[in-house]
Amino acid sequence: MEDYEIICLFWKRDEMAIKHTEVKYGGKLCLLAMKILNSREDTAECVNDTLLKTWNTIPPQKPTYFFAYIAKICRHICFGLLDWKNAQKRNAKIVELTSEMQSCIPDSLSNIDREVESKEIGRLLNIFLSGLAQEKRLIFMRRYWYTDSIHSISQRYDISESKVKTTLFRTRNELEIFLRKEGITLWTVKT
């Protein structure tokens, strides 16, 4: 079933919409949630919550990219469920990703006590990603959005693991420079 047909079912408040969404994208959502939560029970809960939230938000939403829309919901719920304090014990991958991303933050920004609004970070990341070459953007998104391993990215795009690592390293450096430049804006928004 096409995405727009599923969206039509949501708009008609037909519960088959949930069924079709689960059939078409349930597996992908499970995979995404499992990579973040590393727990079968939490993954099942997260996918169910994703379907429920999709049901509650369409309508009024009419997403252009349906999979991206539900995957975003799923990712938000996953990170909401993630126990950051115990993540170090349970999920080494998240710790690894967090540590990699930490290296992108310039010193001037790491001293900001307050938590910068995630939406504002998202806005900056949108600008940053728009300016990236497609190759870099895809690798960056697979790593830090889909939380893919270096190995699976290299398999997916048929490139060497060292190429993936180099590309990620350079992209993180570019992000650091970008964030340093945008730091003033970020600070101004918060004050």
Binding site: L97, T98, I105, K119, I121, G122, L124, W145
Partner: peptide, 8 residues
Amino acid sequence: LIYGMGFV
């Protein structure tokens, strides 16, 4: 930053 990625 990881969480902010969710808003791209």
